[in-house]
Amino acid sequence: MSVINSKVANIGDLKLEHFKKADKFESHFIRIGQLLGAKDLGYSYDIVPPGKSSCPFHSHRAEEEMFFIVKGSGTLRYGDETRKIREGDVICCPTGGPETAHQILNDSDADLAYLSVSTMMPAEVCEYPDSKKVGAFGGSLRHMTHTDDALDYWKDEVPSG
C-alpha cells in the first residue's frame, strides 16, 4: 500500500479482503478509514461482482452515509424507489427509518466499485425492512432481533401482577 505520512492511500495499491455470504452478497473491500487513523468518519472501498450486493437493504438511525460510484453501474434501492446508478454518481443516505433504507445492487455484467463514507457514531440502530430485523450496536454490544420480538419495557423489572 502506498501511504504518505499514514494519511494518504491510493485505492489501486490497497489489498482488499473478500467477503461472501450465500449467493446474494459478495464484495472485495477494505476499511480505509481505520488504516489511515480516521476518528469521526468511516470510509471504505468496495468492489462488488456482477449479480451481487455487499449488504442487505437497511437504514440507519444514527449514522449518515454517502456513496461515490468509482467504476461501473448498478441499481440503487432507496426507500420505495429504485434507480440506475453509474460511474460518477454521488448518493446521499441520511438517517431515518424505512424511507431512507438503501442498498446498492450490481445488476450489470461488470464489477461495480464505490467509496462509502459514514459518520462514526458511538451507538447505532439499523433497520432491515426486507428481513424485518433491527440491530443495536454500541461498543461491544451487537444485538439483532426480529421486529416482531418486542418485549414490554417493564418485563423482568417489576413483579408481575
Rank of each mutant, 00 (worst) to 15 (best):
M1C: 08
I4A: 12
N5W: 09
N5K: 15
S6M: 08
K7S: 11
A9N: 11
I11A: 07
I11Y: 14
D13V: 02
E17P: 07
H18Q: 11
F19C: 01
F19P: 01
D23W: 03
E26D: 05
G33D: 11
Q34F: 10
Q34Y: 10
Q34A: 14
G37Q: 09
A38E: 11
L41A: 10
Y43T: 10
Y45H: 13
V48H: 04
P50S: 07
S53I: 03
S54L: 06
C55Q: 14
P56V: 13
F57K: 00
H58T: 02
S59E: 09
H60D: 08
E65K: 07
M66Q: 10
F67H: 14
V70E: 15
G74S: 02
L76K: 06
G79R: 07
R83L: 08
K84S: 12
E87R: 07
G88Q: 10
D89G: 04
D89V: 05
D89T: 05
I91C: 12
C92D: 13
T95P: 03
G97Y: 14
T100A: 08
A101S: 13
A101K: 03
Q103V: 02
L105A: 02
N106D: 00
N106Y: 04
D107P: 11
D109T: 14
D111R: 01
Y114A: 08
L115I: 14
S116D: 13
V117T: 09
V117P: 02
S118N: 11
E124G: 03
E124A: 01
V125Q: 12
C126W: 01
E127I: 14
Y128S: 05
P129V: 00
V134K: 03
A136E: 04
G139L: 04
H143R: 08
M144I: 11
H146Q: 06
T147M: 15
D148S: 01
D149C: 03
D149P: 00
L151C: 08
L151T: 07
L151Y: 07
D152K: 14
W154A: 12
W154D: 13
D156C: 06
D156I: 00
E157P: 00
